[in-house]
Nucleic acid binder design. Structure first.
Lengths: 210, 210
DNA sequence: TGGCTTCTGGGACCAAAGTCGCATTCGGCA
DNA sequence: TGCCGAATGCGACTTTGGTCCCAGAAGCCA
């Protein structure tokens, strides 16, 4: 049985998540504050964690930080649930290595996709030892191999994961306009046209083929 | 010295291609008809062939067909030069495995990008034996592994290579509207949003990791 | 101090992508 | 024969993406 821990204080969202996830056969655990979330994660060892950014006690970033420090629980796939307006301040989310960001409002399909893909990825990591997909854990390879700036590399990393400009702005804590500016510079530097070509290039790098 | 064979009857375009390519240090050979093109390709063994679709003698498709049958010359990177309006009738271009399509009018950058990327790819094939990028040679893996229709797989294959809807319509011989319809169906079937996410999925499959 | 790069944003504007609803053709298959 | 899925096409519309031009703040280095 696959167990998912939901760390979220808004009852509306908790109910919605519970409904969707249980219908898919997942076992749903709930914690309604940061401290409770950390405790539950350590105690229950869920297969995946969905965590809101804004919460009482301490926020989602702090939850992630503590879990990553924990070692064992630090390997659990971790997905942030965030509104577009809520900027990931100080960009701590990214730097701490959240596996994905789910932007509110999200559809049933978006939620299930994010959950499934992260579970599959974790599974592949355990089994194959190398991974079933690409390594999105760090923008560093993109920066060094493509000769771009750190910020550009971060933007590209999320573009290559299929995020929209608006989402990326939310995740990295910058305006959508700024995302566009970085992308424009990126296109020029890399001599390509369009985010799609950028995605292909990035994935070539991230798959270790360049 | 890298040698490029241009098979094109329109003097305007020949001049333009020659100017751009020689400036980049490529050695440019020219043939102005299908038969001449085949003869030149077999005799000169260029490193890459740029070939117009519409031509006297026989057309670009026929040139490609004969070269592919030839064996040795069949391995040379082959890029079709085509106008958006000229549809790849009977979709023979795709089925015969042209490496890329360059849509008129094209910019200097587009031309050089296509040429460079195909040369690099051929180089990687000779050296590494496996390839430096992804295997775009057939839509079949996409079809079977993702459970989509043949036509949808063809569309996806070109989306994953960064082509626009209009270009894909030209390449596959269908209206842009139809490309959009297929893509819409694809998004629903795969449970994703946007061509970028589709690209990531497709590349995972084409990299042999799924 | 002066120049350089990086990162950040705004406004205007055009092009491309994507959605919704509807309709036709064609080939298998019950 | 009649139905169905696959493939194709059109129109109208909304949303993103991308470009051009511009400009301020911060940090590094000669």
């Amino acid at each position: 049985m696959t167990r998912i821990l939901v760390v979220e204080d808004n009852p509306q969202i908790v109910r919605s998540l519970e409904t969707i996830l249980s219908l898919e056969g997942y076992d749903v655990l709930v914690a309604t504050s940061g401290p409770d979330g950390v405790a539950a994660a350590v105690r229950e060892r869920p297969d995946l964690i969905l965590c809101d950014v804004m919460m009482p006690g301490f926020d989602g970033h702090e939850v992630l930080r503590r879990l990553r420090a924990d070692g064992d629980a630090g390997l659990t796939p971790f997905i942030f649930v965030t509104a577009r307006a809520e900027r990931a301040d100080q960009r701590t989310g990214m730097e701490l290595g959240a596996d994905d960001y789910l932007t509110k409002p999200f559809s049933r399909e978006e939620l299930l996709n994010a959950v499934r893909s992260r579970l599959e990825r974790a599974e592949a990591l355990r089994a194959g030892g190398g991974g079933g997909a690409f390594d999105f854990s760090s923008p560093e390879p993109l920066q060094t191999r493509l000769g771009i700036t750190p910020r550009e590399a971060e933007v590209l990393l999320w573009v290559a994961q299929g995020k929209s400009n608006a989402d990326i702005g939310g995740i990295l804590g910058m305006a959508e306009k700024t995302v566009k500016t970085h992308l424009g510079n990126l296109f020029t530097k890399l001599g390509i046209e369009g985010r799609n070509a950028a995605t292909v290039l990035a994935l070539e790098v991230l798959s270790g083929r360049r």
